[in-house]
Structures are given as C-alpha cells and as structure tokens.
C-alpha cells in the first residue's frame, strides 16, 4: 500500500506526549516514526539502552511507552531484547501465547556503536527476529556531549574540544551501517527525517516485518550537542542528506539500494555551517579541515554509488 502521510500520522501514538526529551531532539521522532510502522493489532516489546531516551521516557512512576518496555543497562539492550524474543518463541511453542509480538530496540550511538556493540553484534548474528534502531546523535549526549565513534571528524565535543592546537575530534566516524551489512542480516537501512517521513516509515515497516534480525541507523540530531536552533531540526537533516554527509540507503539480503540521490549535491559546508559544533572550522586558516571532510564525504559517496550500482 502506498504511503499515506495523513493516515500514518493519525495512527494512535505508541510513545505518548509528556516525555521529557528536549524540544528539537531527533530521538523521539525516530521512535515514533519506527513505531508507526507497526500494525495496530500487533503488540510490541520495546527495549531501550541507558541514555537520554530511556531516562526521559521512563522516569518512575511515569512511562511514555504504551507497549511493554524494558531497560536494563547501557551496553546490553540487544541482548536484553534477544532474551525477550527467546521467551516469546518458547511460550509460543508451548501454546501459552496467541498474540503476535514484535521486538524493537532503541539505543543511541554510545549504546550501539561503542559500549553496546558486542551485544548488538551477538544478537544480530544469532538471528533473533528483532529490529535494532540506533538513533545516532553523534556523541554521548546524556552524559554531556562526549565524543563517540559516531562523532564526525573535527567535531567540538567535551572530550574532543576544539583547542588552540587540536581542532576537535581527530578520527572519521565509524561506518556502523556497513559493519552491520557485513553481519549478512536480512535487512539494514540508513535513514533520517526527510520530507513527509516516508523513507523512515517504509524502512521501519520492512525492518519490523522482515523475518530475522534487522538494523536501522537513524541520524537523530541533538540541538544541545550540535548547537542548532530547535526549529531547524528538519532542515539540518535535509542538509545532511543533500550534502551526502548522511546518505539514505537500504541493504536487503545483501543487495544495496540507494534511497535518495540529491539533484544537486551540496558542498559539505552547507551542513556544517548552521551547527555550533563545527563553528571553529570556519575560522580563517581552517579551510583545509573542511576540505578534508569534503574529500572523505566524496570518497564514501562514490563507494556507496558503486555498491548500489549507480555508477
């Protein structure tokens, strides 16, 4: 069925309002966007790694998730939910349960790229029928904007501050989506919030209703860490995609498919300029840093086009 924005947006929310995430944060958009792809009759178990999303949506005694929910720790969301999925299979086999349940895990880049990576890798390799969604906001935001392996090169964070000698983080971002593709799981997608949320919705639907493990990497901007105006969230996402800094693609059973090719690929400066975390790059004398970023974006984009058969 073709994507109908109005119908999708009118579905009952499975993450209710009243949670304590910041205005202009991408994480609750990612959660709602993914959860809207669930069929209304299907039930879900939602697992969340320790982080902003967890502490802001389940502050005792209030919980914003309408489905059954579990948080245990920072580095083990995938393992935790894999256990719940195993329980579901066991109880189904013993005829103790009739309903259909889906298993969805959310973690930030800290809980996914870094401390939770082993747990994620293990759960995906074991083939649990679950979706792992990374809301990638490019740093450890819950503890106050420390660098992660998902932080882009030259970003100013509180553990890679832009100083007189060192201009922010010194490494390029880990390509986790590609690492997850290498797990040879049935479905991997990279997305963010674009236009009418069609890309996010359709990918979430495939991830949830593909049998076996699925991984989604969702760029989810953080206004405090990235230092943009809260109302600019959608614009920042659009620039990430149009500069090819964060390309949209999916990999279905090993087949790479580009989801979006900008009509005009914008220079990476367009994405960097509105964000305070890159402010130091625009000081005179730092042009070569932006050039370095541009070269890496170009290299990765070319490689992606090749994988997707676009070149």
């Amino acid at each position: 069925m073709a994507y109908q924005f109005k119908d999708v947006m009118n579905k009952p929310e499975r993450l209710t309002g009243g949670h304590r995430m910041c205005a202009g944060c991408g994480a609750p958009l990612a959660v709602r966007g993914v959860m809207r792809a669930l069929k209304e009759d299907d039930k879900a178990v939602v697992g969340v790694a320790t982080g902003c999303l967890e502490v802001s949506t389940f502050t005792y005694p209030y919980v914003a998730f309408k489905d059954s929910f579990i948080h245990t720790a920072f580095e083990n969301a995938a393992a935790t939910v894999s256990g719940a999925e195993a329980a579901y299979n066991a109880l189904k086999r013993k005829n103790k349960i009739d309903e259909t349940y889906k298993f969805i895990t959310f973690g930030g880049d800290g809980g996914t790229y870094d401390i939770g990576f082993q747990s994620l890798s293990g759960a995906m390799e074991r083939g649990h029928d679950m979706v792992y969604v990374c809301y990638d906001n490019n740093a450890y935001m819950n503890t106050g904007i420390q660098r992660s392996s998902a932080t882009p090169k030259y970003t100013d964070t509180t553990t890679t501050p832009a100083g007189k000698v060192v201009p922010g983080k010194q490494q390029f971002k880990k390509d986790l989506s590609e690492v997850m593709v290498s797990h040879e799981i049935p479905y991997v997608a990279q997305t963010t919030f674009i236009g009418n949320f069609k890309d996010l919705h359709e990918k979430a639907e495939k991830a949830i209703y593909t049998e076996g493990p699925a991984f989604m990497n969702v760029l989810a901007p953080c206004p405090r860490g990235w230092r943009y105006e809260t109302e600019d969230l959608m614009e920042i996402c659009k620039l990430a995609v149009d500069t090819c800094f964060w390309p949209l693609f999916e990999v279905i059973n090993g087949e790479w498919k580009l989801s979006y090719k900008p009509k005009k690929k914008l220079p990476v400066e367009e994405y960097l300029r509105p964000q305070g975390r890159f402010k130091h790059l625009f000081k005179p004398g730092n042009e070569h840093l932006i050039e370095d970023i541009q070269n890496e974006v170009d290299r990765k984009w070319e490689a992606l086009l090749k994988k997707c058969g676009e070149l």
């Binding site: 579990i70 393992a79 894999s82 256990g83 999925e85 329980a87």
Partner: peptide
Amino acid sequence: VESEHSAMSACIGSEAAG
C-alpha cells in the same frame, strides 16, 4: 550468547517477558 554479560541480560529480558 556471546558473553556472560549478555547471558544475564538475556535472562532478564526473558524472565521479564514471562
């Protein structure tokens, strides 16, 4: 599982699931 940390984490998810 791939570690004891994940073993106990999966135990928690499973027991919590019922």
